[in-house]
Design a protein around this nucleic acid. Structure first.
Lengths: 210, 210
DNA sequence: GACCTTCTCACCTACGTGTTAAGC
DNA sequence: TCGCTTAACACGTAGGTGAGAAGG
């Protein structure tokens, strides 16, 4: 029966690959308010950061891990009266570019020994000639991040998508400036780089409660 | 005749690999004074930074690039009367650890498209349990940096050293504090992270000239 | 004492934040 | 005007320097 298990494992390699989102509680806080991500000319990091844990890879095989953003719909969105509402006309979506995790390519053992963070990816609203760290998105459109696991071939350089995983709680609307103040407060509260605004915001909230 | 060339290329793959040092003029300035590198408990970066340009790899094959430090001799060195002199007894050298460039493993095309810098490697005088970014050296011993090109095998995970290159101008003595003031001045002059001391030192030099 | 090592420090580099005012 | 975008800015994180005093 052990032989059968091993054979089974090899025949269904793809099915055994698991991709789990980390920090899901944090993502849910943002998601429940409709998450927003800033896009700038030079590119802005995501917060929260996409972070996944991968299992089921062959320790000695070579993989790349990719991140991209699928258009959640074709609408343009608008923030009116404290609510996000879809705009009028569906627009054709440009083909989404893809971000390759900087550790790529690497062995299955590398990808599985610790969680894989995408802190370095930058979201932009300009078509940049720059490096591969920037992904172009359309402002005021909704996106859903996706992780792809790719098997890196041997000498012939072939690449094959083994697994694609989406994460509904990580959906967001790209913006050039935050629309929902509650999103701003959550970002300031949890992102260490925004600590400069933490005390000020906290004081405001306290003042409002008095 | 073209077929012969291609065959020849494959038979002598190793011989075609070239590893060239960058910033050699800068290295020479330090080398002419006998270069020193600080080692600390937590690890200190090198300055100048080892930076090489590699050619002659197979674009689609997978390689890792390694850095280590061979003992230039078995002596302990001493700085007396403004000169480095070898100490008395030759000592057995511990096996040198090796630092793997963080882009490893990667395709030949990746390694060849731009120069490969080792800015992140840290030199330490303690056996650290830490990560793989630190290399342990013995203080007051002389070392010569080496670059290794390793071919990463396919499924079986084999690794084979294809090329080892040393760079005489990058030799240095590991120290816990700079001995030669001229080395200190050169480091301050060229390392951006030491800019805090640039003005002070410059003023001193100017004062000495008056 | 002489020599070498360790620790703390001020001062940088490098760059990630939301804010705000100006631009379109 | 209104809606959206841009650029300059103050204020953080994160960490790389040699100096200098203290330790061994």
């Amino acid at each position: 029966t052990q032989d059968i298990k091993i054979e089974d494992h090899h025949h269904h390699e793809k099915d055994n690959i698991k991709v789990r989102l980390e920090d899901e509680e944090l993502w849910k806080k943002f998601s429940s308010l409709t998450n927003e991500m800033i896009v700038t000319k030079n590119g802005r990091r995501m917060f929260p950061v996409m972070k996944v844990r991968v299992g089921g890879l062959d320790e000695n095989a070579m993989y790349s891990v990719l991140l991209d953003f699928s258009a959640a719909d074709n609408h343009r969105w608008k923030y009116v009266n404290g609510e996000w509402v879809p705009g009028g006309k569906p627009e054709p979506q440009a083909p989404p570019c893809v971000y390759m995790h900087p550790d790529s390519p690497n062995f299955g053992s590398h990808w599985m020994k610790q969680s894989i963070g995408f802190s370095k990816v930058k979201l932009t609203n300009k078509l940049n000639n720059h490096n591969g760290s920037q992904i172009m998105l359309h402002s005021l459109h909704k996106y859903e991040p996706r992780i792809h696991i790719i098997k890196v071939g041997g000498q012939q350089g072939t690449q094959q998508i083994l697994k694609t995983q989406t994460f509904p709680t990580t959906k967001f609307i790209a913006v050039t400036a935050y629309q929902n103040e509650e999103i701003t407060s959550l970002k300031i509260k949890h992102n260490p780089f925004a600590k400069a605004f933490l005390d000020a915001k906290q004081r405001e909230e306290i003042d409002q409660n008095n």
